[in-house]
Design a protein around this nucleic acid. Structure first.
Lengths: 344, 344
DNA sequence: AAATCGATTGTTACCGGTAACAAGTTGTAA
DNA sequence: TTACAACTTGTTACCGGTAACAATCGATTT
């Protein structure tokens, strides 16, 4: 069975005895079509199995009803986040195009944005976290030359851009405060790489909570990791060997917390009896760590949903002639999940 | 600075004093353009900052240079897999469109495929694993009505479709054989949900290895989980309580292995001294389990790359009039990663 | 010298919709 | 009676490329 050629709008128009434009109106549910005409056209559509070509519509309207998600090619993005973004986009009538970016040099970024412009993409979700100088290209004025709504995830708010991020500072405060409330007084922090904005925010939250309780937060209490379990193990080892006085650690993510647990086990330090531990993220594994890990939940799926919803709003604003993106920052909250690793 | 209208091919043609078609030839690197003409056109392109419209090209060529990846909306897909797929697609000049599918009923699948056809997508990567009856729609003949190359991931090979999957049976044999070689004789299996094809394959591999060694593989040695750490803990608990004679367990994925470890700890059973454990997947966390987990590496990124490469090949075959997809099955291999949980 | 060929360039039509505006009808207010 | 508005429908042009085929020209073949 050879797939016969696609039916186009003209054939429908001919069969229904109306003009193409009228068929177009019916397809797009325009109100200014007489009921009787509409029915005739719909019947023709059904009879011929007509399906409008999205491509042709794109060309003539100058847009594609597609949003691009730009991720790094290194795989920081959570699956949940993609799922949330995809579901939200589909629900709002947009498609989602996945792109990766090797490095954030001005040339690469410009090439990427121009190619997205060639595709008539409606908007871009920048899902690369704010790390080191990878926002430097913003200073070049590129954004004002590229008429494309952008929304940045996990990025420090600044003038001229729209961000949707977790309030990591608040989340870190939540975690640290929990340790304080449990009676701990020497609370160290195993941080993420400090060129990451989110890592610095978590440090700030930790500091703020300690300061609020009148507890010390000197630099000897902080050790830097790279988010990986292996780094967590190493960093925790260094910390334990250097400071025998600490009685609790806030680890900047669950993966490192796993390594930290291993380091403690290896030294015969019992968690939580001798050392309380709290993580961050609530990855599914954390419930079965040994012991199960107290942590702070970040709803990544929700993050993806909100980011896409925000982007879609931005797209529609742009289409109705609104001003092009002032500073906007949306912040998402956290939930404390108490398990055994911080039991009192 | 108002973004002035896009430059189109006619303006370039006018400036260079040639026809649109010639500009098109230059843009597409056709060999039949005189060197001098080509240079004149290129200069005009550069001067005007012309960028060809992908949308217009799509309409006129009837294709979009875009591949769709269909995932379930439940989040089974690994980030690595997306990364591999995206990188490969970009490298081959394709874009990647992300779609999710709520349920695999014939109606839903048909709606999805038709909508992808409306977008002139070149091919589809079916990244939903083969579970229960979710391939039933294949029997409806839908595929022959929809002229769209499909490649299925993690799916049982069958007539008329192209699959790219790991050889899970071989991987499971690898794992089980390792336990056998380490001197274990009562080797249980903590399986994934048995409506998953990959879970059944792993069971088969386990059975085959035991049979090859003349060891028992009775049904009492198998417990079913749902891939989650919590299920791993529960299932392992049931197993340990019922069968005190087992000396090793092949767990169908690392996440459940984590739960299994916890269950063992809770019962005071020491791993690996009293019980050897091997997982599957080599998730990054497994290196820091307590003890570090012996496991079988699946290169998910590679899986994504190969799947896209296969799909692209299928697309190009279709374009050059080749026959429409006979049965093809590509199988990917595994690597054993030995750590402490199986130490002898 | 006529025919042929390869290289280069142009012409025409078409992909399949939508925007913008014009035009016809009917009912109603002036 | 006439004008005007509301409602419907049609006309024309355009979005920005590419396919298919025609045409031109100098060089080569016979």
């Amino acid at each position: 069975m050879l797939p016969e050629k696609r039916v186009n709008i003209s054939q429908v128009a001919a069969l229904a005895g109306v003009s193409k434009q009228t068929v177009s109106r019916v397809v797009n549910a325009s109100p200014s079509v007489a009921k009787e005409t509409r029915e005739r056209v719909m019947e023709a559509i059904a009879r011929l199995g007509f399906r409008p070509s999205a491509t042709a519509r794109n060309l003539s309207q100058g847009r594609s009803y597609t949003l691009a998600v730009v991720g790094s090619n290194l795989g920081f993005l959570a699956t949940d986040l993609y799922q949330g973004a995809a579901a939200q986009a589909e629900g709002m009538g947009y498609g989602l195009l996945l792109r990766t970016l090797a490095d954030s040099s001005l040339e690469q970024v410009e090439a990427l944005l121009l190619s997205l412009l060639d595709l008539q993409v409606d908007g871009v979700l920048w899902a690369i976290p704010d790390v080191g100088g990878n926002r430097a290209w913003l200073d070049s004025g590129l954004l004002s030359r590229v008429p494309l709504p952008l929304v940045f995830m996990s990025s420090e708010p600044r003038e001229g851009i729209v961000t949707v991020s977790f309030d990591n500072q608040a989340g870190a405060r939540l975690a640290t405060q929990h340790l304080i409330d449990s009676g701990h007084t020497r609370i160290a922090h195993l941080s993420g790489p400090l060129d990451w904005w989110v890592a610095r925010e978590r440090v700030r939250g930790w500091r703020a909570a300690l300061a609020g309780a009148g507890l010390p937060a000197d630099d000897g209490l902080i050790v830097e990791g790279d988010w990986s379990p292996a780094a967590g193990e190493q960093a925790m080892g260094r910390l334990l060997d250097a400071r025998r006085d600490i009685d609790a650690v806030f680890v900047a993510n669950d993966r490192m917390a796993l390594g930290a647990l291993l380091a403690a086990h290896r030294r015969g330090i019992r968690v939580p009896q001798q050392l309380a531990l709290i993580g961050f993220d609530n990855i599914i594994e954390s419930a079965c760590f040994h012991p199960p890990l107290t942590t702070v939940l970040q709803d990544k799926r929700h993050h993806g949903e909100i980011a896409i919803a925000t982007l879609a709003r931005e797209v529609e604003a742009r289409l109705s002639g609104k001003p092009p993106a002032q500073r906007t920052a949306e912040e998402l909250g956290h939930t404390l999940i108490v398990r055994e690793s911080s039991a009192t």
